[in-house]
Design a protein around this nucleic acid. Structure first.
Length: 200
DNA sequence: GGAGCGATGTCCT
DNA sequence: GGACATCGCTCCG
């Protein structure tokens, strides 16, 4: 067995308590974890390599800023649920709710390293096949397209239960080294260091 | 390889 | 009616 596998174990679903912390803590700790989406009987899996924390009521860049609406209700619910929204008329973005019920907070998943189901991901992305690995799952819209995640099917799913089509797993891979930067693509609260990227 | 920009639907004022 | 937690194309170097 290769040395890189020595610290791995069978993937375990992250428990609800994992998401109970602040978005900042959860966003950092999600790096290196696996997201897997069951689509037509196939598992599409990627490792999280970029995330952003959205803090809630006090954060002008958060969807929860300004109070609860039909769209952002998941953020106000219990931790460990998927929050999928539609943006710019053509893209979906995937988040996970965190903090306890009534305290809104979320983590945006910005990039994955493809792990399983690359052929299907390539097809879903509309890419030709060779040499496009970098474009497969880098970007919040791209990774949703690659994994087949949509608002209609994947919003408000409990990702901590065994029978969920969408799950987040810990395979015991060692904690990655992390770069912290300001968040990307927002126009409010731009300077806060709430973006987390795996280096390399 | 990077800046500029159009596409496009939904939410909220 | 405007903004938007984006992407991929064009054009220019």
């Amino acid at each position: 067995m290769p040395a890189t596998h020595l610290h791995h174990h069978a993937p375990r679903i992250l428990p609800r308590e994992f998401y109970g912390a602040s978005p900042k803590v959860v966003a950092r700790k999600l790096l290196g974890k696996l997201i897997t989406h069951q689509l037509n009987g196939e598992r599409l899996t990627g490792r999280i390599i970029e995330s952003e924390a959205y803090l809630g009521r006090c954060d002008p860049a958060s969807h929860a800023y300004g109070g609860e609406t039909a769209r952002n209700a998941v953020l106000f619910g219990p931790p460990g649920y998927s929050y999928v929204y539609f943006i710019y008329g053509m893209h979906y973005c995937l988040n996970f709710s965190c903090q306890k019920q009534g305290e809104p907070g979320g983590v945006l998943i910005r990039a994955l390293e493809p792990v399983a189901g690359l052929e299907t991901m390539t097809r879903l992305r509309g890419l030709s096949g060779i040499g496009r690995r970098k474009l497969l799952c880098s970007g919040p819209g791209r990774l949703c397209q690659a994994l087949g995640i949509t608002l209609a099917q994947d919003n408000n799913l409990d990702v901590t239960v065994v029978d969920s089509r969408l799950q987040v797993l810990d395979d015991g891979s060692p904690p990655p080294s992390i770069l912290v930067t300001p968040r990307i693509g927002i126009s409010k609260a731009e300077d806060l260091p709430l973006r987390f990227v795996v280096t390399g």
